[in-house]
Design a protein around this nucleic acid. Sequence first.
DNA 1: ATGCCGGGTCCTACCCGA
Length: 256
Amino acid sequence: MKIATWNVNSIRQRESHVCRWLERISPDILLLQEIKCEAHAFPAAAFERIGYRAEAIGQKAYNGVAVLARVPFEVTHRALPGLGPEDAQARYIEIVAAGVTIIGIYLPNGNSGGEAGYAYKLAWMDALHARVALLLEQDTPLVVTGDFNVCPTDEDFAPGTLGAGDALVRPETRARFRALLWLGLTDAIRAVRPTGAVWTFWDYQAGAWPRDRGLRIDHALLSPTIAERLVSAVADRAVRGEEQPSDHVPVVVEIG
DNA sequence: ATGCCGGGTCCTACCCGA
């Protein structure tokens, strides 16, 4: 089973990129982030024509997540449990497919909105921790994937791209990411490639792509029995060189 | 220190991203 994640930075701008990529890679399931439209505006028909059923959780202008799958699946949650009614933002989808629970997330960036904006990021991570802990207590086969907006270590951003106070690298951010791993999850990319530069994002600005100055912020975390079945985990950096690309590239995990 | 680019929307100057 091939499971992928991709922050597309507007699905309406990236519809043809996603179709081309699905036809080339044939993942069973693709989680999308930053669709930047309401569900009724999601171009589901284009994906259905090539064999992928779509479920979108959208909002106007910002955020938004979706699932595209060529295998049967059921959406079990459309928001992160435990965050409270203040969370009107479309950042979470949870599905079950082939007996595996798959969570797709667009974790808040945390650099806008001052300290309140950063507090929202941390609260979101705390609620995610609680949700994952509950599922793992029940021995649920689990994949947590998406745009985490976290560079877990100093190896996960090119030198000079981020300051020490950036919400993607602040100690409180990284502590929460580590706490997620300590629940028993395996970082799929690092299981395959323990050290060295693996980028999933290159800023549009300052020549980040031609200079290869990127970040690793899109992740796939695997529960123990899924991690044992891990065959490969890669960031498909080739798509960043296409015409009018997203600033993120897909991360693909293959489970045997 | 800020903007760089590229999405979005109150359609046009401004917000947000990472």
